[in-house]
C-alpha cells in the first residue's frame, strides 16, 4: 500500500500508544491517507507574517490566590482506579 510508504504507521502507533490490529488497522491507514490529502488544501494559504491563534480570546496568566482549597480525599481519587491497595494505585512492575 502506498499509504504505508507515506505514513510510518509503526512510529505513529508508538507515539500514540495505541495498538491497531486487523481490519481496523487497514481501515484507519486507508482513511488517514485521504484525510491528510484533504488537509493539504491549506498549503495554498499564504500565512506570511500571520500570528498563530491557539485560543479564541486573549486571556493570559489566569491565576488563583495561592491558598489551599478543597482537595480530593485519597478515597475519592481512588474511586475509579482499575486496581488499588492500601490507598494507592496498583500498577505493573516497572523496575526489575
Amino acid at each position: 500500500m502506498t499509504e504505508e510508504n507515506r505514513i510510518d504507521i509503526e512510529r505513529l502507533t508508538t507515539l500514540a500508544r495505541i495498538e491497531l490490529e486487523g481490519s481496523e488497522r487497514v481501515k484507519i491507514i486507508d482513511s488517514l491517507d485521504e484525510i491528510l490529502d484533504y488537509f493539504k488544501t491549506l498549503s495554498g494559504v499564504d500565512v506570511g507574517g500571520v500570528e498563530e491563534s491557539a485560543h479564541a480570546f486573549p486571556l493570559y496568566n489566569v491565576l488563583r490566590d495561592d491558598k489551599v482549597g478543597p482537595v480530593f480525599s485519597a478515597e475519592d481519587a481512588l474511586l475509579n482506579a482499575p486496581e488499588q491497595r492500601d490507598n494507592q494505585f496498583v500498577v505493573p512492575k516497572i523496575v526489575e
Binding site: 505514513i7 512510529r11 505513529l12 502507533t13 507515539l15 500514540a16 495505541i18 491497531l20 481496523e24 484507519i28 482513511s31 488517514l32 484525510i35 491528510l36 488537509f39 491549506l42 498549503s43 494559504v45 500565512v47 500571520v50 500570528e51 498563530e52 491563534s53 491557539a54
Partner: peptide, 30 residues
C-alpha cells in the same frame, strides 16, 4: 477515536508540526 488520535499525533509529530499544526493555527487567525 483511534483515527483522530492518530491524525492528531501525525500533525503534532516533529517533522509535521510546522507544516500542519502551526500552519493551521495561522490559518485560524485568518
Amino acid at each position: 477515536v483511534k483515527r483522530r488520535i492518530m491524525l492528531g499525533t501525525y500533525v503534532l509529530s516533529n517533522e509535521n508540526f510546522d507544516s500542519y499544526y502551526r500552519h493551521a493555527q495561522k490559518v485560524r487567525t485568518l
